[in-house]
């Protein structure tokens, strides 16, 4: 079915406190959708015959639009922080540059003034651009419910395309990142059909850092999107790269391993085979770049 013009009817409610959210979730549950930037949500609502009866705007909740960095505990980004706000934050640029880099690849500038980190994470799209970077910084979803606050590693938060571990009475309050390992370097490389602005056919984030405890003297974290039901890390490859001093051949092997692990499906954007080969090529490329920057 082709998308409809405009948005279907719904009730817009702005939540002033987390209690508002809990009350409405309890009362309206199934008929309610939490809203942050809305950039994906509105498009989905035009695509579907039946939309939610209520959009509950949680952007205004206390702390939702704040970025809080502390040297010891790390970084907490409110779920409603926009991608532009995030990518221009000086603390982030210095300590978590891969997040900023990833943010700049999402959609376009106008969209990033509305799109939020929380939205990108909650959508649970396999191709979420923030996901690989969030994974390599070992991000945790901070969830709030009447039962209290809990944190869930992002790997556990995403269950499948469009599906998360959010309980019916919960909302995503923030994403927390521990302090990055000392000396960490990394980057996010994204392949789309256009030079900018497209969804990822494949995206790979790598974070590397010195670690004297392993024979390689280095460790890498590798996060990928678009090539499995959820964004994912590849621990087997990460572990493989710690075993002996790094060489170009080892990086090539790591790329082959990543390709084997990936499980893309053919879609309108790319064939399965191309996606797999791109997992290999991009992984190799970002690993090499990161290795270079660590030397």
């Amino acid at each position: 079915m082709l998308a409809r013009p405009g948005l279907p009817e719904f009730e817009y409610i702005r939540a002033g406190s987390s209690q508002d959210v809990f009350d409405l979730l309890k009362e309206k549950g199934a008929d309610l959708k939490l809203m942050l930037g809305g950039t994906d949500l509105f498009v989905q609502m035009r695509d579907r015959a039946q939309g939610p009866g209520i959009l509950l705007d949680v952007k205004g909740l206390p702390g939702m639009q704040e970025i809080d960095y502390r040297q010891r505990s790390g970084l907490t980004i409110g779920a409603a922080v926009t991608l532009n706000q995030l990518s221009t934050d000086l603390d982030l640029k210095e300590k978590y540059p891969v997040l900023c880099q990833a943010a700049d690849t999402v959609g376009n500038y106008q969209l990033r003034n509305r799109a939020t980190l929380g939205g990108n994470i909650c959508n649970a799209s396999p191709s979420a651009d923030m996901a690989p970077a969030a994974l390599v910084y070992e991000g945790e979803a901070v969830l709030e419910s009447p039962r209290g606050e809990r944190s869930l590693a992002l790997e556990q938060f995403w269950l499948g395309p469009g599906s998360t571990a959010l309980e019916g009475d919960e909302y995503l309050k923030a994403i927390h990142f521990p302090p990055p390992p000392p000396g960490a370097r990394g980057s996010y490389l994204k392949l789309g059909r256009s030079r900018m602005g497209d969804l990822a056919i494949v995206g790979v984030a790598v974070l590397g850092y010195p670690d004297k405890s392993v024979p390689a003297g280095l460790r890498f974290r590798i996060g990928l999107n678009s090539t499995a039901p959820t964004p994912y890390r590849i621990p087997a490859v990460e572990e493989f790269l710690t075993r002996e001093p790094l060489t170009e051949d080892l990086i090539s092997l790591a790329g082959e391993m990543a390709m084997e692990i990936s499980s893309p499906i053919e879609d309108v954007r790319a064939t399965e085979l191309y996606q797999k080969k791109m997992v290999r090529n991009l992984t190799v490329k970002v690993l090499k770049e990161t290795w270079e920057s660590l030397r």
Binding site: Y12, R14, G37, G38, T39, F42, L55, D57, N84, Y109, Q110, L111, N113, R114
Partner: peptide, 13 residues
């Protein structure tokens, strides 16, 4: 002061 797609902003906001 910041550019947005006006199709992506709800009136009550």
């Amino acid at each position: 002061g910041e550019p947005v797609n006006s199709c992506m902003v709800l009136a009550p906001e």
